[in-house]
Computed example of a mutant assay.
Amino acid sequence: MARPAYLHRRPDGRYCIQIRLGKRAQEIHGRPLLRVSLRTANFQEARRRLVVNLGWAVDIVQAPGLESPGSN
């Protein structure tokens, strides 16, 4: 079965969400990728958790106010 986009398997077998950051986000975070553990090594569970968590991960990457998180 093909692995969904944004799903990455680490060498220890655990899965994580992996999304490439834009230039501005890279400058702020100092890294080209956002990686967040899904805390499972089971592929089916990782797919389920990816669907549940992908929305907020994409929101973080595309957030207009990355320079000042928490300030409104």
Rank of each mutant, 00 (worst) to 15 (best):
A2Y: 02
A63M: 12
V36D: 06
Q44E: 03
A63H: 11
L33I: 08
V36F: 06
S71A: 14
P32S: 07
Q26P: 09
S68T: 15
R14M: 14
G70W: 00
F43N: 04
R3G: 04
Q62V: 13
A5H: 02
G13I: 12
P69H: 00
P11F: 01
G55M: 07
R47P: 06
G30I: 09
A57I: 07
A41W: 08
L7H: 00
A2V: 07
R24P: 08
S68C: 15
Q44F: 03
R49P: 10
L7P: 04
A63G: 10
V51L: 11
I19Q: 01
A63P: 11
F43P: 11
S71M: 13
R10I: 07
D12P: 13
G65H: 15
G30N: 01
I28V: 15
A2I: 06
R47T: 04
P11H: 02
L33A: 04
Q26M: 14
L54W: 05
L33G: 02
A63S: 13
F43A: 12
D12M: 13
R24Y: 01
G70P: 09
G13Q: 05
R39N: 15
A25F: 03
M1I: 08
R48A: 12
G70F: 01
A5F: 01
T40I: 13
S68E: 15
R3V: 10
D12Y: 03
D59F: 05
L54S: 09
A41H: 10
P4D: 02
I28Y: 07
R24G: 04
H8L: 07
A25I: 11
L66H: 07
